[in-house]
Design a binder for these strands. Structure first.
Lengths: 124, 124
DNA sequence: CTGACGTTTCCATAATACTGGAAACATCAA
DNA sequence: TTGATGTTTCCAGTATTATGGAAACGTCAG
């Protein structure tokens, strides 16, 4: 990922409504949601939401596909992973006590990373 | 982390020079760098850099401390971890094939997460 | 106290972004 | 073809942000 790509992606996320949309789509997973459903859920006029969705789409963080009359938006997980990786790249000059919590924080927050999945399996 | 805190942090990163500063400080680790050293390294006038450093500082992503005449800035790793966690929170409704690459991407990029450290140890 | 150094604050200019109603566009059912 | 539905584009007003030189501020050595 290039510096400019990261700036574009971060700018796309640096807005109240767009951040809310993106997080909702992260939770929704690959199936995504229609523009209308997103507008309804976040109570924003269609034209404003369209502006934000197009912004996120141009940044590469979400994808767009048509299903009948609806346009379905979904988070682009590869792109998000590339952004996260770019932010922490080569961190802290080899001090594990600084780096380690990063991966842990991500694992803990995401619902089903290997560690989380393993724990769920053991409980079952 | 609240939505507004995340927006503020992302906005702080969503600018060419500030992103470059932050990534440089992530690599520098807890010791940080002086304002002057940062300006020199990135070839930006002191007043412009000061504007950006203060922006990052207000967002909570970097800390400031004085050492003699110099002001030293350092990445706030806890804050960054909280931001990453907020972005991926409860992702993808339980599909490990979507979530797993996230933690992996972060682990691979950071220099010394447990996995990376283990690999380095095994090689030695 | 004085001078030098590192840094921030002030300021005006130029550029960019957010908002939401109305109109246009795309798709589909009948 | 017509009408209904879902979505985007257009537009103009308002607000926010980046820039860098000059001046002011805090710290220190002699």
């Amino acid at each position: 990922m290039k510096n400019q790509d990261a700036v574009t992606a971060l700018a796309a996320l640096a807005q109240e409504h767009r951040l809310a949309v993106f997080r909702m789509l992260v939770r929704a997973g690959p199936e995504g949601m229609s523009a209308g459903a997103i507008s309804d859920k976040l109570s924003l006029p269609a034209s404003s939401m369209s502006f934000h969705l197009s912004h996120l789409n141009r940044s590469g963080l979400i994808t767009q596909r048509r299903e009948g009359r609806s346009l379905i938006y979904a988070a682009d997980f590869d792109r998000m992973n590339a952004l996260l990786a770019y932010l922490v790249e080569d961190c802290c000059q080899g001090k594990p006590e600084v780096c380690a919590p990063m991966a842990e924080a991500v694992s803990r927050a995401a619902c089903c990373t290997p560690a989380t999945a393993k724990r769920k399996k053991e409980r079952a």
